[in-house]
Structures are given as structure tokens and as C-alpha cells.
């Protein structure tokens, strides 16, 4: 019975959107936590490396988080792909001319920003977690790894672009998820939209500051 309900839920577009919203929200919480952790880079190598060690000292929690993240990414990506296919199908013949009026650039590019972020995350894991694309990778020396990576200009540039896209993704996603879950209020929704924009900008800026600081030589 419960599976039938879940199935019926998921087969509808609204159900898929709810799944995206919830998974997106959890991914967002990770991004915030991760950013706060990463910003310790400004407090020196010791602090950051100690933090990394601390995380590793709690294998259950670490793996718990990893599994949740993996499931969320899978759900988020899987439903976005299904919806994307459906939406492509919904307009088989396009317009000769089409002009957007009031929508934001961010909202119209979710299906671009999302996959690019996915590509980024894969690269990112190869870079810092598995050390496959980073010739100077030293297990345990998180600080050193980050600095080594970001000193390579193309890598930094890619990070910066990805972070901009993440900001864009969240600029729309962070208020959209409320709408998708059915929350809308004439007074609060505009406030929410502004808050979402601020959060997206802060996250993008916080993340971008790291490669920029490395390039500028502030973090060495």
C-alpha cells in the first residue's frame, strides 16, 4: 500500500518536484555546512587539517552523511532528468521567436546549471577526496591539497565558474522549493525570494573567495 502511494506520488510531476525540493534542500544544507568548514582555511593549515581529522574520527557519522548525500544527489538528478525529458517532449515544435518577459535568467537555466554542478562535483571528488587529478595530492593534508589545486589557474577558473553556477542554481532553487512544496504567501514569498537571493550570493561569494585568495597569495 505504502509503496503504491509512493509510486503514485512519484509518477506525477508534482511528486517529482517535491522529491527535488526535499533533496535539493538537504544538498543545500550540506553546501552550507561544507562552506562553513572550508572557511576555516583562513585560520591556517592546522585548524583546517584538524577539522578534517576530526571528521574522519567519526566514521559512522561521516558515512551516514555520505550515504545521505549520495541518495539525495541520485534522487535530485534522477527526477530532474525525468522532468527534463518530459518538458522537452511537451513542446515538440519550438517558436521562431521567443522572448522571455519577467522570469529570471537563473530560473530558465536550471537544467544547465544543475548538470554543470554535477560535473563539477565529480571533478571535485577526484581532486580532493580521491586525489586523482591533483599531482600534488597528499592524503591528510587537506590544506595543502586545496592550495596546490587552486594555484593552477584553469582549475581555479573552473571552480569559480562552477560556484557562480551554483549561486545561480540556488538563487532560483532556494525559493522555488517552497513553491514546489506548496508554501506561498503574498507577504512572505517576496521576502523569501530576497532571502534566497542573499543566501545564494553569500554561498557563491564564500566559496569563490577561497580560490581567489589562493591565487592572490593571501592563502598559501
Amino acid at each position: 500500500m505504502a509503496t503504491a502511494v509512493a509510486d503514485r506520488f512519484y509518477t506525477s510531476t508534482i511528486g517529482k518536484k517535491a522529491v527535488m525540493a526535499v533533496s535539493g534542500c538537504i544538498l543545500f544544507l550540506f553546501v552550507v555546512g561544507h562552506l562553513i568548514g572550508n572557511l576555516q582555511i583562513y585560520e591556517g593549515s592546522e585548524k583546517l587539517n584538524r577539522y578534517a581529522v576530526f571528521l574522519r574520527s567519526l566514521p559512522a557519522a561521516l558515512w551516514g552523511v555520505r550515504i545521505v548525500l549520495l541518495v539525495m544527489v541520485t534522487l535530485h538528478v534522477w527526477s530532474s532528468v525525468q522532468l527534463a525529458l518530459r518538458n522537452l517532449e511537451a513542446r515538440p515544435v519550438g517558436y521562431v521567436k521567443k522572448k522571455p518577459t519577467e522570469s529570471t535568467y537563473a530560473s530558465r537555466t536550471m537544467y544547465w546549471s544543475g548538470p554543470i554542478i554535477l560535473a563539477f562535483v565529480i571533478y571535485h571528488l577526484l581532486d580532493f577526496t580521491f586525489g586523482k587529478v591533483n599531482p600534488h595530492f597528499q592524503p591528510g593534508n587537506v590544506y595543502g591539497n586545496v592550495v596546490a589545486s587552486f594555484q593552477v589557474i584553469p582549475v581555479s577558473a573552473f571552480y569559480i565558474v562552477a560556484m557562480l553556477l551554483l549561486g545561480l542554481h540556488l538563487y532560483h532553487g532556494l525559493w522555488s522549493m517552497f513553491q514546489s512544496l506548496g508554501f506561498s504567501h503574498p507577504r512572505y514569498t517576496p521576502v523569501l525570494r530576497r532571502a534566497a537571493a542573499v543566501a545564494a550570493i553569500l554561498i557563491a561569494a564564500g566559496n569563490i573567495s577561497i580560490p581567489v585568495s589562493v591565487l592572490a597569495g593571501i592563502v598559501r
Binding site: 510531476t13 508534482i14 518536484k17 522532468l83 518530459r86 517532449e89 519577467e102
Partner: peptide, 16 residues
């Protein structure tokens, strides 16, 4: 859904 309309991603062109 059966009619083949797309899903809403809260873009807002419709409202405009």
C-alpha cells in the same frame, strides 16, 4: 499529466 503538459519549475513566464 496525462495530457502531456510539462512540469512547472516555477519560472513565472506564465504569470507575466
Amino acid at each position: 499529466n496525462r495530457e502531456g503538459f510539462g512540469s512547472c519549475t516555477n519560472i513565472g513566464e506564465c504569470e507575466a
